[in-house]
């Protein structure tokens, strides 16, 4: 019982770590994007200021489902983050860092947010949710096929074990290199997951007034910002553990994490936006073909670099 409680506390620690890490890195990235656009950019801790400011405001609510959805969203995401290994040996619940838990438990959070947004009664929110779900249908399948290849090849779906397996083969046994086509697909899918341009369809400030977020202000919006930061933490960490050889220690983890997130941000800052149906068509064309080809090559022909 006591060690269970300790594990849960450790899990809360992981979630908190993820929040602090991602929020700082997001702030730094805002500065980097600012520099790309020849601006000075905000303070590196601007994201913290934004979130705490939102939490300090007095907001409006549209009924119990509006609040309940937000709680469910943040709760689901915190719960998911608690399972995330930080390094390949440091995690709250050793042995239970199963890949599918992340993919599906994260969906509870998404569902909570979607529910709350629709519960606000604003049609723009429902449109935003529709776009978010449609985009999800697009990027998730190619990504899952690549992960299937990895799990089939290694026989494990535990993130930390996958990390250790990659480390055992030397630094360049990372799956992003061993499965080059799959690596490309994973990067593209990760951009979709993070809602980076060109796949940002659901947050459209001018078109649908920021979509799902349209009715939020104050603490509800602040909680959704926290949720968003932790979601990004989960998704980028998934990529680090699955494709970049996990992390031997916490420093490597932060470096890899920072590199991935910054690279994606820089890439995204030079693109425009696609329409939703273009996103779907795009993902079901090249990324899916590449992913399936990669899976066939790796599983049936055994060609792994």
């Amino acid at each position: 019982m006591v060690d269970m409680l300790l594990m849960i506390l450790a899990g809360v620690g992981v979630a908190l770590f993820g929040f602090v890490l991602q929020t700082s890195i997001a702030g730094v990235n805002r500065k980097i994007v600012g520099r790309i656009q020849k601006r000075y950019g905000p303070k590196w801790y601007q994201e913290f200021l934004d979130i705490f400011k939102l939490l300090s405001k007095r907001s409006v609510t549209h009924g119990w489902i509006f609040d309940f959805g937000v709680i469910m969203a943040l709760g689901g995401i915190i719960g998911t983050a608690m399972f995330m290994p930080i390094t390949s040996s440091l995690m709250a619940f050793p042995g239970y860092d199963n890949f599918f838990i992340f993919v599906y438990l994260i969906a509870v959070g998404m569902l909570g947010m979607a529910m709350s947004a629709s519960g606000s009664g604003n049609p723009l929110a429902s449109i935003g949710v529709m776009r978010a779900l449609t985009t999800m249908l697009a990027y998730e399948v190619p990504f899952m096929i690549v992960v299937l290849t990895i799990i089939k090849l290694t026989g494990t779906s535990s993130l930390s074990e996958l990390g250790i397996l990659q480390q055992a083969g030397g630094d360049f046994n990372w799956f992003v290199i061993a499965l080059p086509l799959g690596g490309i697909v994973a990067v593209i899918s990760l951009m979709g997951m993070l809602g980076k341009k060109p796949f940002v369809t659901y947050i459209a400030p001018a078109e649908i007034a920021s979509g799902p977020m349209v009715e939020y202000g104050g603490k509800q919006l602040g909680m959704l910002f926290i949720m968003h930061e932790i979601t990004v933490f989960i998704e980028v960490s998934l990529f680090v553990h699955l494709f970049l050889g996990g992390a031997e220690n916490i420093l490597f983890f932060i470096i890899k994490y920072f590199a991935v997130y910054t690279a994606l941000n820089i890439m995204s800052s030079v693109y425009g936006r696609l329409k939703i149906d273009q996103v779907v068509l795009f993902f079901y064309k090249w990324p899916l073909i590449l992913a399936v080809t990669q899976a066939f090559i790796a599983i049936y022909l055994g060609w792994v670099i």
Partner: peptide, 20 residues
């Protein structure tokens, strides 16, 4: 763990200012 997450979120929600 999901329950713990929801509990944390609920605590955050309830200590903050009440919404209109």
């Amino acid at each position: 763990v999901f329950g713990v997450g929801v509990l944390i979120a609920f605590i955050i929600f309830i200590v903050l200012k009440k919404s209109r």
